[in-house]
Simulated assay, not measured.
Amino acid sequence: MYQEERLLAILQFLKANKRISVEQICSLFQVSRDTARRDIVKLEEEKAIVRTRGGAILPTSNHAIKNYSSRLKMVSEEKHVIGQKAASLIYPHDRVILDASTTVQACAEHLGHIDCTIITNSINQAEVLSSKSKVNIQLLGGKLHKEHRFLYGASVLEKLTEYHVDKAFIGVVGISEKGLTIAHEEDGGVKRKMMQQADQVIVLADHTKLGITDFYRFAGLEDIDLLITDKTPPKPFRELLSKYNVELLTPDEDIEGDD
């Protein structure tokens, strides 16, 4: 097992058990104490854990979600490769919903000049897509969340009931055994309705979102068909996806089975 995979597995263990010792790392992953300590140091440097005497615990996870403009400035290479892979799944004549997350905006940015219809509640994505000559854009009207740049409210939910689409691309703050979660209830309500109107629900989430549970749960794992992420998750998370018949797609691989 590579260190990167082991670090993800350690975080998964911490999310389930709250703490981990050097001895447990050695036993779980068949590594030396020196290797276990290096793993803890690496996770501490990434601010993913808090070191304790003989092990590690998770830091306090409550944090403010940066506004949309700030999050756009921080869009990572991981989000770009996820967006590129997601865009490759949109075909001519598809009818598609894109939500208002920055990862899904990366999908919009990589979309080619193909004849398709995009429905979105994101004013930023509508602007991005306006440069795609063949894309038909349906912008959902409603109340504007100024900080996070999405439209929401009763009029958005009512309008969504009128559409039936081939695919919905949904971003999350967290995806775990507790389902799909987001920071804002208003956003979550719209995402839930978007998913209900689609034949195929595709979640876009980089590896830092896996195993995370945020404030508002808007859907369960049983409600999604495909997860696109930037690297293969640890085995326990893959088994969780398999339990709910969620297919997994990473940028350098085809859709994966259960093995």
Rank of each mutant, 00 (worst) to 15 (best):
M1D: 07
M1A: 10
Q3A: 15
Q3T: 13
Q3G: 10
E5D: 15
L8M: 13
A9I: 05
A9K: 09
F13E: 14
F13D: 14
L14D: 02
K15P: 10
R19V: 03
R19K: 14
R19D: 12
I20R: 04
S21L: 07
V22N: 12
V22W: 06
E23T: 10
C26I: 11
S27W: 10
L28K: 08
L28A: 09
Q30W: 09
Q30F: 12
R33S: 13
D34I: 12
R37E: 11
R38H: 09
D39I: 07
E45C: 11
E45S: 15
E46V: 09
K47P: 02
K47W: 01
I49V: 15
V50L: 11
P59R: 01
S61V: 12
K66G: 09
N67C: 10
S69H: 09
S69C: 06
L72W: 08
L72P: 03
K73A: 09
V75K: 09
E77M: 07
E78P: 01
E78A: 14
E78F: 13
K79N: 04
K79V: 00
K79D: 00
H80P: 00
V81Q: 08
I82K: 05
G83E: 00
K85L: 11
S88C: 04
S88A: 09
I90Y: 00
Y91K: 11
Y91F: 14
P92K: 03
H93F: 05
H93L: 10
D94W: 00
D94A: 07
R95T: 14
I97F: 11
A100V: 06
A100E: 07
A100I: 04
V104F: 07
C107W: 03
H110P: 04
H113C: 12
I114T: 12
I114L: 15
D115C: 05
T117I: 06
T120M: 06
I123W: 13
A126V: 03
E127K: 15
V128F: 09
S130G: 03
S131H: 15
K132N: 08
V135G: 01
G141M: 06
K143E: 08
K143L: 11
K146G: 15
H148D: 11
H148L: 05
R149W: 11
A154V: 12
V156F: 10
L157D: 06
E158L: 03
K159C: 13
L160T: 05
T161D: 13
H164D: 13
H164I: 05
D166W: 03
A168N: 03
F169A: 03
I175W: 04
I175A: 05
E177A: 14
K178E: 13
K178Y: 13
G179L: 02
A183F: 12
H184L: 15
H184S: 12
H184E: 15
E186M: 12
G188M: 12
K191P: 00
Q196I: 03
Q196E: 15
Q200Y: 06
I202E: 00
V203W: 00
L204F: 00
G211S: 02
G211A: 09
I212C: 05
T213C: 10
D214C: 12
D214S: 15
G220Y: 07
E222R: 13
L226W: 02
I228Q: 00
T229P: 01
T229W: 01
T229D: 02
T229V: 07
P233N: 01
K235R: 14
P236A: 08
R238C: 15
E239G: 04
L240F: 07
L241V: 00
K243N: 06
K243W: 05
E247C: 11
T250V: 08
D254W: 07
I255N: 03
E256M: 15
D259R: 10
